[in-house]
Design a protein around this nucleic acid. Structure first.
Lengths: 122, 122, 122, 122
DNA sequence: GTGGTCTAGACCACC
DNA sequence: GTGGTCTAGACCACA
C-alpha cells in the first residue's frame, strides 16, 4: 500500500480498515487481520498497525479479545458513516467552499467536474 | 500571526506571502519584507522565514537579489492561482466526490450546504 | 572530514554521499547513515546533514521512510553520473576551452599537461 | 549583465574588466569607465563596482588618479594573462582531469568536444 | 530509535 | 543594511 505524505501512516491504516468494513470485507463481529498479518500486507511496522487498532478501538470501531484478536464492533458501519458525515459537513466542505471563492469558481463548475467524475468511474 | 497546528509554520508563511501577493500588497517586481522584518512581524524566527522564502523561490514565486532582498517574480500571481486551481481540481475534488459517494450524498446535498454557507458569510 | 572553504558544507556533504554511493558503500535500496550518525562521523551539526539530505532527496538521489531513515533511490548511480557528466560537458568544458583560447593554448598543451598529471597520480 | 550564482559579483565584474582589457576595449594608460557609469551599465550597485576596482588596483591591473578616474596599468595585459595561465594550469586543469577520470572519460573525448566547440564558435 | 521543525544566536560575505 | 550558513539545543510526532 502507498501512503500519502501529508497524513500520518497509522491514520491512513485506520481509514483503510474502516473502508474494508464499509465494503463488507469484515462484518460486525468478525475477526479482522492480526497486527502482524496486516503489517506484512501493508508493508508496515506492526507497531504502526497496533497504533491504528488502538485508535480504532478508542473510537469503538473494533474491540479486542486478549490472545484472540481484534473484532468488528456492533454498529461499526453506522458509527463510521456518522463520523465521516459529520467530518465531511463540518470540516471538509467549508474549506472547499472557501477555496472555490478564492479561485473564483462557482457551484456550477463543481457540477461540471462532478459529471466528468461520474463518467470516469463508470 | 496565529498558526494552525496541523501544518508546519514555514508552509503557512509561504501561503501567507502568496495571499499577500494575490491581494496586491506586493506586486510583481516589488521587494517583499526582509527575512528579519517578516520574522518580527509574524513573531517567528528569521530562519523559519528564510525556509519559507527558500520554498517560494524554488517554486519561482519570488527571487533573490543578493544583499538586496527578495522580489516577486513576473507572473507570480498567475503561477499561484494556477497551482491552487490545479491542486483543487486534481487533488481535492476527487477526494470529495469519493467521500460523497461513500456517504451516499448527492450533488444536490452539496448545493444545499453551499447555499447555507453563502448565507453564513454574507 | 575536512571541508573546502569556497563551497558550503551541506553541498560538500551531498557530494560526499554521492561519492560513497558511486563507490558502492551504499547500494540502491540501502539505508544510509542517519542524520545524527553522519553528523557525528563528519563532525557536523545534524541540522546541516539534514539540509544535505533534503537537497539529495529533492534531486531524487535518496528517499525517506518516515521514522526509519533515508534510502538510496533506484538508479541513483546513473542519476549521479548523468548529472555530473552533463555538468562537465555543458558547463565546465566550454569555460575551459574559452580560457584556452584567451590564453593562446592549444589542445596539444592540454595533452602535455594531462600526461604529466597521469604520472603524478601513478 | 547576467551573473553566475556560484561566484561573487564583484569578482565577476573584475573578470569582465580584465576581459575588456584583453579584448582591447581599453588599452594601457586609458581611463576606464567610472564606478557610476559601469554600475549603470551592469545594473549593479556602484559600491559593488568600487569593490572590483579596489581588487583590480591591489592586483596592479588598474590605478587611480583621485578625482579623475581609474586607468589601465602598464603591462596590464601581460599581468592578466600570466595570472590566468598560472590559475589555469595549477588550479583548474587538475580538477578537470580528476573529473574526467571519475566519469571514465579520456583525453580523446576531450578532443572530440574541443573540435565541436571550435565549430560552434566558427 | 528515526526524521522534522523551530528557536536563539553567532558569524560571514556581500551590496 | 541584506541574505546565507552553521551551531547548539530543544521539542515533537512517528515507527
Amino acid at each position: 500500500m502507498e501512503f500519502k505524505e501529508n497524513q500520518t501512516i497509522y491514520l491512513q491504516i485506520g481509514d483503510y480498515v474502516c473502508e474494508q468494513i464499509l465494503l463488507g470485507r469484515w462484518n460486525e463481529g468478525d475477526r479482522i487481520l492480526s497486527v502482524r498479518e496486516l503489517g506484512v500486507a501493508l508493508e508496515v511496522n506492526p507497531n504502526t498497525v497496533m497504533r491504528s487498532f488502538d485508535f480504532l478501538q478508542s473510537n469503538e470501531i473494533i474491540f479486542n479479545k486478549r490472545g484472540v484478536g481484534y473484532f468488528v464492533e456492533e454498529n461499526a458501519k453506522t458509527k463510521i458513516i456518522d463520523y465521516r458525515r459529520k467530518q465531511f459537513l463540518e470540516q471538509e466542505l467549508p474549506v472547499i467552499f472557501k477555496t472555490m471563492n478564492l479561485l473564483g469558481m462557482t457551484i456550477e463548475d463543481i457540477n461540471v467536474q462532478y459529471n466528468s467524475y461520474l463518467k470516469s468511474i463508470a
